[in-house]
Each structure stands twice: as C-alpha cells, then as structure tokens.
Amino acid sequence: MEEKKIKFFEQKNWIKENLSYYKDSGSWAWIYHRISGIALLLYIFMHIWSLSPLTSGKEAFEHKMAMYSTPVFSVIEWLLFAIVLFHSLNGIRIVLVDWADGARYHKKLYKLTWIVGIVLFLAMGFVMFSHEIFKLFR
C-alpha cells in the first residue's frame, strides 16, 4: 500500500493556505466570527474612550456626545449592530455545536443565523430611524 503523505498547514504561507482551502459554511462562520470579534474588541476600546469624559462632568460629556448625534454616526452605529448581531448569533450557534449536538445541524443553524440576523438588523433600523422614516411620509 502506498504511503499517503499528510499535508500540514504551512504557517509561513498562511494567507495563501487560508485562501486556497475549500470553504464551506462553517469556514465562513469561523472567518466572520474572528473578524467581527476583533472589530468588537476595537469597538469596546472606542466605547470606553468615548465615555471617558464622564470623569470630567456634564459639559465634557455632552460636548463629546454631540459628536455622536449626527445622522452619519447613527448609520455607523446601525452597522455596528450588524457586527454585534453576527457575533452574538454565531456565538449561540457555536455553543449549540459544542454543547447541544449542533454538529448535526450546524449548516441549518448558519442559515438561521443570517435569516434572524437580517430580520433583527432591519427591525433595529426601523427602531433607530423610525422618526426619520415617518417624516418621509408626512
């Protein structure tokens, strides 16, 4: 019998290795979870930084908050919610895979992640911008 050569992950060419690897839904979930996780860690830094004027009282805080009350910033906030949603829902999927035999239905869960995610994303958009939306039809 011919001896099969086992291919190991070549860490030095990790970009090429990762790109050439065939990706099923689980791989994409893994990649998005990682990217969204890093993004959220950066966001939590920004979040604490943006709240830090609270230590200097009302004026400093409200001056800072005025910067975050623009429409452009609201849209960015909404996009942030998309990242939070994906990381939360896919996180629940991971827990189910680990603890509730989810390996048997993880692909369905991945689809569900996107369906529930998009519905909640649009719902949040409505909650955040309902006043603006109503103004359009007045």
Binding site: L54, G57, K58, M65, S69, F81, V127, M128
Partner: peptide, 18 residues
C-alpha cells in the same frame, strides 16, 4: 447586550444625556 440595546435605543434619545 439585549438589555443594553433596549436601554439605549428604545427611544431616539433614551439614556444618552448626562
């Protein structure tokens, strides 16, 4: 997070003033 979002976005200005 669910609690945080309800608190912050239930109303347009909820919870963001000093």
């Amino acid at each position: 997070m669910i609690g945080h979002y309800i608190l912050m976005h239930y109303q347009p200005e909820s919870g963001k003033t000093y």
